[in-house]
Design a protein around this nucleic acid. Structure first.
Lengths: 274, 274
DNA sequence: CGTTTTCTTGATGTAACTCAAGTCTAGTGG
DNA sequence: CCACTAGACTTGAGTTACATCAAGAAAACG
């Protein structure tokens, strides 16, 4: 996989260009629960930095701001499994996910893969260091995203303080998520890690659709393992344990219901889970 | 410890006020290698977001910006072990560390402590969610810091786009650090985690003083364990293993020399370290 | 409908945890 | 200045949870 020669920028441009779709149509029938029901246009949301909102995710951008971003951006689409960008490539674009789920990862010298995070509609991806992407990003499901050229965005931010503030707030949100991820990983037990992961997915889902505890797992078990720092086998076994204890129930491999909302948190942070 | 009743804001104010020191004197003879040799004043530095700088940390603020921040801030001091703020307290201040080392942590329900990060001069701490601190922060060594009232800072940022941009860049830097932390934790082996930790400290030291591989460990073994997600015993054993293999050598418990700069990275990301 | 990928489940070895006892060090007061 | 003490660190022994290896089952894909 990933057979194209990594000439970097040019290859990358050529590759992505294939998926550009000026329409911005929404993806229709994805049943992964992650499709967005918003009207068309760029959109960024987060738990606010200052104002209390009962833990709910709120839309940060005004209509005007969304227009401004729309003016400098293009709608792009990626198919399941496609590479969005690679670590080390020149960071020319920021992506605002509109529908679908993305994953960022870092490849270690020996080929081990570390999944940094999963990203959902209204998230931003494309973090850079010294002008180059630090992680690689792929589409977990089919994705529609707004692609913002960094120079144009920087320009826009320099002119519009409020917009810049909102990006700042969003970044704070992502920073908190990254810290939360670290907290998950420091949990000793596999069950505790998985419980925290499910809780995280459930919370992000709840903030979006507000429905009951029906969680969808668009990513593979292997993705989850690489995110939680466990082996694929252990993830599978842990799911089974949860099901056996009637904490969750699977509709199929990709869809589960959280049966015992109090049970999962109780597993967390116990020194030894027996 | 931490015996003061947690009435939150008022107690907090009263507590910190004790350490306010309008002078802004630098701490003199700390031999922890983390003292800053800059001239007086607020200071923020990071690896740039766009421009290449050979991986070096650079000062982000202009003289004018540092003055602006100085005008809204007060110099505060904390003694070793003092609490800077607590998770859940109203996030009224942001802190710009000037000298010394701080640590942020989160306490889990069962009393387990998770160290989120260590912070050095030129770093910012005080991340909030919905107006409240998400982590607690303590002084690992004696600390001098600039204390910025959030409302005033927000005001300042709304007026000064460039300054806001610089804060944004700094936040990106911290986000990358948090991700790096997660990568460390996903390493299986204790040796690999500790090696990455030492590498991290060494790099941050190198960016500051540029000297040879003399790393200081101002934090306790227990802090390191809680940061790396290991037990105190394992951290100790791993240090011993490194020393036995002549990868590092201890001057004393708090100061070590990286003897084999190539040896440590070679331990990292190996599936099994034997 | 066959092939490939993804997932489940079992058996075994080992790294790291826990418990626990012993050593060092820095900070305190005589 | 030195003895003393409390906290920080080291090291050992036994146990356990998870990684690894491996084979079989179930989806997903063309």
């Amino acid at each position: 996989m990933q057979a194209i020669s990594s000439v970097g920028w040019r290859t990358f441009e050529a590759k992505t260009r294939r998926w550009i779709d000026i329409g911005g149509r929404m993806l229709g029938g994805d049943d992964d629960g992650s499709r967005s029901r918003r009207t068309d246009g760029p959109s960024i949301s987060a738990i606010p930095y200052q104002d209390a909102s009962d833990g709910k995710i709120t839309q940060l951008l005004s209509e005007r701001e969304r227009d401004l971003i729309a003016q400098i951006s293009v709608t792009v689409r990626f198919g399941r499994g496609d590479t969005i960008y690679r670590a080390g490539d020149p960071a020319t674009f920021l992506y605002n996910i509109s529908s679908g789920v993305a994953r960022t990862h870092r490849a270690l010298p020996d080929g081990t893969r570390v999944v940094i995070g999963f990203f959902f509609p209204d998230d931003l991806i494309g973090l850079a260091e010294e002008g180059a992407y630090v992680n690689s990003a792929e589409a977990v499901t089919a994705i529609t995203a707004y692609r913002l050229p960094m120079p144009a965005l920087e320009n826009l931010l320099r002119r519009d303080t409020t917009l810049e503030w909102h990006i700042l707030v969003k970044l704070c949100h992502e920073l908190r998520e990254a810290q939360r991820h670290a907290v998950i990983l420091k949990q000793q037990g596999a069950l505790a890690r998985l419980a925290l992961f499910l809780q995280m997915l459930d919370r992000s889902r709840e903030a979006r659709d507000g429905g009951a505890g029906k969680v969808s797992l668009p990513m593979t078990r292997s993705d989850i393992a690489d995110y939680l720092g466990l082996s694929l086998a252990t993830v599978s076994r842990s799911f089974r344990t949860f099901a056996d204890r009637h904490l969750i129930s699977f509709r199929d491999r990709r869809h589960l219901l959280i049966a015992d909302h109090a049970g999962l948190p109780s597993l967390i942070a116990q020194p030894r889970l027996e």
